[in-house]
Design a binder for these strands. Structure first.
Lengths: 202, 202
DNA sequence: CCTTACCTACCGACCGGTAGGTAGGCTAAC
DNA sequence: GTTAGCCTACCTACCGGTCGGTAGGTAAGG
């Protein structure tokens, strides 16, 4: 019987997170059993508990990794952009590309199972989400102040944008008519310029 | 022991749907047990099965009622508006008011538990959703054709709008800064006119 | 006296989680 | 370079509890 060497430990942990994320994604957290996950990993249910403490810990680990991923791939790369319009554009496109091209199951889990987590775990994930919302609000405020944007409410603009983007996982399929990049461009166009031709319509 | 008369049957059915919707909303479909629902109704678990056939049937009934509600309160009232801009505005505001003021739990269940349903039930609900998407696409197409809207992709515009609106249940709280009507106006403003001041920005 | 609206009592399956064992690789002493 | 002994990564077997669902009874109203 093959056993894994010590240096594989991190890799194995990542394998478990990835597999669990996929199954939570497919069946939902409550709908997925630890047996489902262990079977997908090719081990027994007890075997999983050598690596994790509880099902809820596993969910938190997945969400935490998903936030790491988002912050590394999107937030960290755009936070330094000084021009607010370029910052917003880069954020919007980066966010959409992550959820359409990379399609990390961890981020879908964050979006769909957010209310499952309780207590400290819940607070930690919520705090990281709130940081992103505040970053967006700041960007919209900068845009209004610099005269580039209309007098929109920064919070309203932030949640309008988040809604558009966070809903994508519910309907977007990569095999469809639009590539991730095309969708990102189209959404940026609609969000920045609106639907109407004339700005006079009130 | 008090027993209910025959004419209460429809009322009782509605009570069960409403209670179940509330609990599915709080705990999720898989996270909620039939025992939770029966306890909230003040009867035993077996008592519920006098009124419904299965847990999945109950979910379908809730979603079906939620679609009835949406179609009656929003879709039916705006479908007849001939001016596409007024039609869109009325749809957007009506939809947002329904999910912010009335806050029917049934619609939250539709949004959050859509992938739980399988088979014919799933197809029936999906078909009704698709009708709404096609209605939106038609409206955007009308707007572009009549020269009121920019040359936006109708599908992209529809899903951008749906994302904004369908994500509201995830963050909006009636006790917050904005009333439902204020949010509806603000979202309509952002969606129709966009964020930017000048339409020249590309 | 039949129907309706429940009830009690129970089913087999499955849940998250654990106790205790074991096979094989790793390390260090000799 | 062998070997003792520990550690990792699992395993089998099982726990108490809960799940969705049902059979069969009962009490009240029409």
């Amino acid at each position: 019987m093959k056993k894994r060497a010590r240096q594989d430990r991190v890799t194995r942990q990542a394998q478990i997170l990835e597999t669990a994320a996929r199954i939570f994604c497919d069946k939902g957290f409550e709908g997925a059993s630890m047996g489902d996950i262990s079977a997908a990993l090719g081990i027994t249910k007890a075997g999983i508990y050598h690596h994790i403490r509880s099902k809820e810990d596993l969910l938190y680990a997945i969400m935490s990794y998903g936030m790491d991923l988002f912050e590394r791939k999107v937030l960290r790369r755009v936070m330094g952009i000084s021009d607010p319009l370029e910052r917003l554009r880069a954020t919007l496109k980066g966010h959409i590309l992550v959820v359409t091209r990379d399609r990390p199951k961890e981020i879908t889990v964050i979006l769909h199972e957010s209310s499952v987590l309780k207590g400290r775990y819940r607070e930690k994930i919520d705090a990281r989400k709130r940081r992103y919302v505040r970053f967006l609000e700041r960007t919209f405020r900068d845009l209004v102040r610099s005269g580039v944007a209309r007098r929109v409410d920064p919070t309203v603009a932030a949640f309008a944008m988040l809604g558009m983007v966070n809903w994508i996982y519910q309907w977007y399929r990569p095999a469809g008519r639009l590539s991730g990049a095309e969708l990102a461009d189209a959404f940026a166009d609609v969000f920045l310029k609106g639907i109407l031709k004339s700005p006079a319509a009130g």
